[in-house]
Structure formats: C-alpha cells, structure tokens
C-alpha cells in the first residue's frame, strides 16, 4: 500500500536502504522502515548518535543500563557484526532477521550455537556450559549447590557430546536441538510479524512505497 504524502526524513549515518535490507532478510521494505522507528528509539536512549551502544541495549532489555548479563552481552556481540562496539541499523536488521518467524531454522540453530560458544572456539566446552548455568542461577537468584550444578552439566554433556570428546560441536548441537526443539524458543520473536503494527508511525514518514 502506498503512502499519500511521503516525506523525506533525516537518516543516521549507518542507515541502509530498506530495499537492500529487505532483499537480504525475511523482512519486507515496510517492515524494515518500521524497524527503523524501533532502532531510532533504542539508539537515542542514552547517546543520540544513531548507533546502539551496549548500555542502550542493556537499558532496553532490563530497564537498567548498568545491569551486567552474560547472555545479553553475547547477543550484543553477535549483533555487532563489524565488531566495532556498536550496532548500526544494518546490523540490527540483519541480526533481528534471524529471529523472524519465517527465518530458516538452520540460521536460528547456528546463531544459538555461536551464542553459547562463549570463547568462539567452534565448540561449546564443558567449562563454558557450567559458566552459563552459574550465570543464569546468579541472574535468577537461584541457589543450587555446586554438586547439583555439576550434575546438571554432566547430564547435559553426556546427552549432547555424542562423539565423547569433551566438547559439543555444531553437528552435535544440531542433534540436541532436534531432541529439544524448545531450546530454540528464544530464537523466534512473534513481534517481528507484526512490527508494522507495533511501530505504525513509519507510515507517515516512509520513503518506501510497496508494490504489491
């Protein structure tokens, strides 16, 4: 549906053409425009420079920019494709694309594997798994004795480490996810299907006219 009175609006330096971004992701051009509304909000919450800083990401997730969280940090690092410490609009859209309900499942599986491969060795190692369990317990203020944590990690490793080499590779992760599809639940954001409804103001400022 086209817009009657399109108006050019100022774009940040990291802004990328919605047509290009739509061609590389599951989003339509209109959805990319709607995501820009969200991006503007997130990227101006602390420093108004058109880039999402780690503190702004934390603020959006937790309503607290000082809160340290291992998993939020990992997500930020994976979104930061250029590894320059900030997330620009193109990175934001491309990374969120993995979370779209229509994104290929193998992209979600790969992203989750990278997320849990804390030290980026190509494997999820036992120490990393324990570190993540301990971080989760700390975050949730749950207290479990160390031997219980060890038992949880051991049991998971016995199940996942099919080759028995003490580490989980991508292939073993794929098998584990087949067995426990719920492990990918966080990798799909239903919101992304309704993004144009959540951020409708783009309709008034859109430069894009969709041809349907």
């Amino acid at each position: 549906m086209g817009c009657c009175h399109s108006k050019k609006v100022g774009r940040t330096p990291g802004y990328e053409d919605p047509i290009t971004l739509a061609s590389e992701t599951p989003f339509t051009e209109s959805e990319v425009e709607a995501l820009y509304e969200l991006f503007k909000k997130l990227s101006s919450s602390i420093i108004n420079d058109g880039l999402i800083h780690r503190e702004e990401f934390q603020l959006a997730l937790f309503r607290n920019c000082k809160k340290q969280n291992l998993f939020a940090d990992r997500i930020f690092d994976l979104f930061d494709l250029k590894r320059n410490g900030v997330i620009d609009f193109g990175e934001f859209v491309r990374s969120l694309g993995v979370f779209h309900p229509n994104a290929p499942v193998h992209h979600k599986i790969e992203f989750a594997f990278k997320l849990y491969d804390l030290r980026q060795t190509g494997f999820i190692e036992r120490e990393e798994l324990k570190e993540m369990v301990v971080a989760l317990l700390h975050e949730s203020e749950l207290v479990l004795a160390d031997d219980v944590v060890e038992a949880i990690v051991d049991k998971t490793f016995t199940e996942a480490d099919l080759k028995g080499d003490g580490k989980i590779d991508q292939e073993e992760w794929d098998e584990l996810v087949k067995k426990y599809p719920a492990l990918l639940k966080n990798m799909t954001l239903p919101y992304l299907k309704d993004i144009t409804l959540a951020f409708p103001s783009f309709i008034l400022t859109s430069e894009v006219e969709d041809i349907e």
């Binding site: 969200l38 959006a60 937790f62 998993f71 997500i75 369990v133 479990l144 492990l183 966080n186 954001l189």
Partner: peptide, 26 residues
C-alpha cells in the same frame, strides 16, 4: 520443573538476557 531436573541449555534459555521481546516493549 525443578532447575535440578532440567537440561542445562533449557535452564540457560530462561535468561532474561535472551528474551529480546523486551526490546519491543514500550
């Protein structure tokens, strides 16, 4: 489900830091 009975990854996946839905809350 008791945390002790969960698969470690199931437990981890409950982290608020992995819930990107929060980004869309106004």
């Amino acid at each position: 489900q008791s945390p002790a009975a969960m698969n470690a990854f199931e437990l981890i996946s409950t982290s608020q830091g992995l819930n990107l839905g929060s980004l869309f809350e106004k």
